[in-house]
């Protein structure tokens, strides 16, 4: 037990939490925005995957990490727009369309990598480079904090900045107000002249872009290659963080951070005599419990109304 406590309070572990939580945070904020605009984005997973693959391929072929990252994010945003188009113009079921997009990304990336590089596994044969780490001048010198906060990847800082930015966007800007209005009562929003469809399209594009940044981090953050299906369900976990966080920016932030911490812990205790697979189930078990409790309390509160499951 002492060993576990020792691991948890080491600065290396806390730095690892920040690193591991990065894709969860970004994708979860993407999911949050989509959820708040009233369209569930199940396709987070596929958007991450497509962005990770595009980023590595473009960076490898063009020799520019920045160009790779931008194209990755752009592809994910386009997938967000495609989801919006399917939902809003073609009457698609948003969950099923999301599953379809995930499949498209999974098959499309694997096919593209094999067709372009002749490699089944990924793009490890391609020199694609990775996004820079930032050494924060000044912070670096603070004893323990410096080791945790400085020297992280640039995307990690963006992910942690995303929480206040998304909170500000949702609650302090006109666009955020429109976004929430459209999500809660589209008809009412329409009646006061808010362009509902445009707001939803923008929201989903933004959602995709955030997921895309998460994906770019996977293939260009600490490694410099794309591996087939490298998202490994992170998009779905991020989606769970959205609900666990109660659809609020800071709640989502904490939930995503907790998922990241649990995964980092699972990796760290792997060296001790504790099965990492079981440690990594903890957040999901907790989410399940929280989901049930939350639903139970909501049901009790609204018991006066006729129940709608």
């Amino acid at each position: 037990m002492n060993a576990v406590v020792g691991v948890v309070f080491s600065s290396a572990f806390l730095a690892a939490v920040m690193r591991v939580a990065t894709p969860y945070l970004l994708a979860a904020f993407g999911g949050l925005i989509a959820e708040r605009v009233g369209v569930s984005n199940i396709a987070l997973e596929g958007q991450m995957l497509a962005a990770a693959c595009t980023g590595a391929l473009v960076a490898g072929h063009q020799g520019s990490v920045a160009l790779g990252a931008v194209s990755g994010i752009a592809v994910a945003a386009l997938l967000g727009l495609l989801l919006a188009a399917l939902r809003l113009h073609l009457g698609a079921d948003v969950i099923i369309a999301g599953i379809g997009l995930n499949l498209l990304a999974s098959g499309g990336t694997a096919y593209a990598v094999f067709a372009l590089l002749g490699d089944k596994g990924g793009t490890s044969g391609l020199q694609s480079g990775s996004l820079p780490r930032l050494h924060l001048w000044g912070v670096e010198r603070i004893p323990v904090l410096g080791e945790i906060l400085s020297g992280q990847n640039i995307v990690t800082y963006l992910a942690f900045l995303a929480a206040p930015v998304v909170a500000w966007l949702l609650y302090r800007t006109r666009f955020g107000f429109h976004l929430r209005a459209v999500g809660e009562a589209p008809d009412a929003a329409r009646s006061v002249g808010i362009p509902v469809r445009r707001v939803q399209c923008l929201g989903l594009a933004l959602s995709g872009a955030l997921a895309g940044l998460a994906g770019v981090f996977l293939s260009m953050g600490y490694v410099s290659f794309f591996v087939r299906d490298m998202t490994a369900g992170r998009g779905f976990i991020a989606l769970a963080a959205v609900f666990l966080g109660g659809l609020r920016p800071w709640g989502v932030f904490l939930a995503a951070l907790a998922f990241g911490a649990a995964e980092a812990l699972a990796v760290q205790v792997g060296t001790l005599d504790i099965p990492p697979q079981l440690v990594s189930t903890i957040p999901y078990v907790l989410t399940l419990g929280a989901l049930a409790t939350y639903a139970y309390r909501r049901r009790r509160r609204s018991n006066a109304e006729p129940s709608r499951a």
């Binding site: 399917l86 073609l90 698609a92 099923i96 379809g100 499949l103 498209l104 499309g108 096919y111």
Partner: peptide, 17 residues
Amino acid sequence: EIVVVIQAVIVLLVTAQ
């Protein structure tokens, strides 16, 4: 993997009611 792509297109077409 082209089969997965074909499958995805099928899903998207089916759901685009």
